[in-house]
């Protein structure tokens, strides 16, 4: 099972490095969104709270533009049967989840660096709180996005359905992650954010377990 998961992850990674479908879309999206924020707020002094929200807007829409590829490309190209005949559904889910985790961590690293370099008002006082929120937020985002991608891959209107379906599911996660980023700007200590961390970790755990249980029904027609 573990070797199958790893093989699916490596297959997706190799495919992505060759075709660059998701990577190019994600990087372009990040660059364009941050540029738009800069143009819209030129000369304005923006509060840390607002910048925290905007950071997660960039992360959310970047995820929406790239994370669905992992399932949608299989469905579009008709390679779903190849995987269905090769292994258990759960191995496919965890392989795809692993790929999306790597993708979202890579993109978030790029987003945060770009954000620090371009947003003058974005000063983090508690880096441990910021990193904990970013890592757990990314885990939750990738896990929910993966299962929603598997669902919408079967639909005809994939592009529009993905953010529409994802938004209500991701709302509790986004609100908590934005709060965590705000707290890191205010200089809160890590122990003070345990409530938020518990929510973020529980969200990730619940989504992964529910996805594991439901994926068989989604994967096979």
């Amino acid at each position: 099972m573990l070797s199958s998961i790893w093989a699916i992850f490596l297959k997706d990674l190799k495919s992505e490095l060759r075709t660059r479908y998701a990577l190019n879309a994600l990087l372009m999206f990040v660059v364009v969104t941050i540029s738009m924020i800069l143009f819209a707020t030129a000369g304005e002094v923006i509060s840390g709270e607002l910048l925290s929200g905007l950071l997660w807007v960039v992360i959310f829409f970047s995820a929406m533009s790239g994370l669905s590829r992992t399932f949608v490309s299989e469905e579009d190209r008709g390679t779903v049967i190849f995987l269905q005949l090769a292994t258990r559904p759960s191995a496919v889910y965890f392989g795809k989840l692993l790929f999306n985790l790597v993708l979202i961590f890579g993109i978030n690293f790029f987003v945060v660096i770009a954000y620090f370099l371009t947003m003058e008002g974005f000063k983090i006082k508690s880096f441990d709180v910021f990193l904990a929120g970013l890592i757990l937020g990314s885990l939750g985002l990738a896990s929910a996005s993966t299962i929603i991608a598997a669902i919408i891959a079967k639909a005809n209107t994939k592009g529009t359905l993905y953010p529409v379906l994802s938004f209500p599911v991701l709302l509790p996660l986004l609100i908590t992650a934005i709060n965590m980023t705000q707290l890191s700007i205010e200089g809160a200590k890590l122990v003070e954010t345990f409530g938020h961390l518990r929510i973020l970790f529980s969200y990730f755990a619940v989504v992964v377990i529910a996805s594991y249980l439901l994926f068989d029904y989604i994967w096979k027609e």
Partner: peptide
């Protein structure tokens, strides 16, 4: 299973397709 609607990964070589399948299947 062999069928006209079964598609292969066209960004990989023939050998790579089989290698991927072999690794996934163990």
């Amino acid at each position: 299973f062999v069928a006209p609607y079964l598609q292969l990964y066209d960004e990989f070589t023939g050998y790579e397709n089989l290698e991927i399948l072999a690794k996934i299947r163990g």
